[in-house]
Design a binder for these strands. Structure first.
Length: 209
DNA sequence: TTGACGATTAGCT
DNA sequence: GCTAATCGTCAAC
């Protein structure tokens, strides 16, 4: 019984590879939750405990436990008091690497999204990590979800045809810490020429109050 | 128990 | 270009 909405899930071993291999390969892939699907155009890699910019840097906590588990699970966290951001856990179990989903293009469920996000132009509906999670209706309820499980409500699938855009890399957004300007970890990946890629913002530290 | 801060965004000047 | 909003998480006390 094949339904039109069925898509081939990326297998577990896709996510179990090194995070710096998985991240660029996720570009062009489609994340579906319910009726809404988003084609990824921008991601960032976080390399577990060896990466000062990663939530996992200080070791496992109740919040980051998911990152230390099996690859292919969703890590959804809350930030700035109002936003959710979604990651896909990668690499061997225990490494705690993950890919942050930064931006994408809505490719299915436009009607639902238009009702969910009134007044937001199509291009901006998944432009930026918090807007992407809002458009896909991801929040705490999806934290820890195994997207490789056959019955998972969230599906990550390969593109029907490979994208032809150039994959570009650069400093990650909003990451500070030791080695600080972000250039030490140029682990942001995006598809060149995509209008949905979030605008570049230099890693300027925010003013302290 | 407390306090500082953040993988952001929207809205105003 | 600049700042407020807003609250979960974590480290320190």
């Amino acid at each position: 019984m094949t339904r039109l909405t069925d898509a081939v899930r990326l297998p577990r071993d896709f996510f179990e590879r090194p995070v710096l291999d998985v991240a660029p390969d996720l570009l062009g892939c489609v994340v579906r939750h319910g009726d809404v699907a988003v084609r990824l155009t921008e991601v960032e890699a976080y390399a577990g405990t060896r990466d000062p910019g990663s939530h996992a840097f200080r070791g496992p906590t109740p919040r980051t436990q998911v990152m230390f588990g099996e690859a292919g699970h969703l890590y959804v966290y809350f930030t700035y008091g109002m936003h959710w951001c979604a990651n896909l856990v990668c690499g061997p179990e225990g490494e705690a690497s993950a890919v942050l989903l930064r931006a994408g293009e809505v490719v299915a469920g436009e009607t639902v999204v238009a009702e969910r996000r009134p007044g937001v132009v199509a291009r901006d509906r998944a432009r930026g990590p918090a807007r992407l999670t809002r458009t896909l209706a991801l929040d705490r309820a999806q934290d820890g979800l195994d997207v490789c499980a056959p019955d998972s409500p969230v599906v990550v699938s390969a593109p029907s045809e490979p994208h032809e855009a150039t994959v570009r890399t650069g400093p990650r957004v909003g990451v500070s810490g030791p080695g600080g300007d972000g250039t030490a970890y140029p682990w942001r990946f995006w598809l060149e020429g995509e209008p949905t890629v979030s605008p570049y913002r230099p890693g300027v530290p925010r003013r302290r109050r």
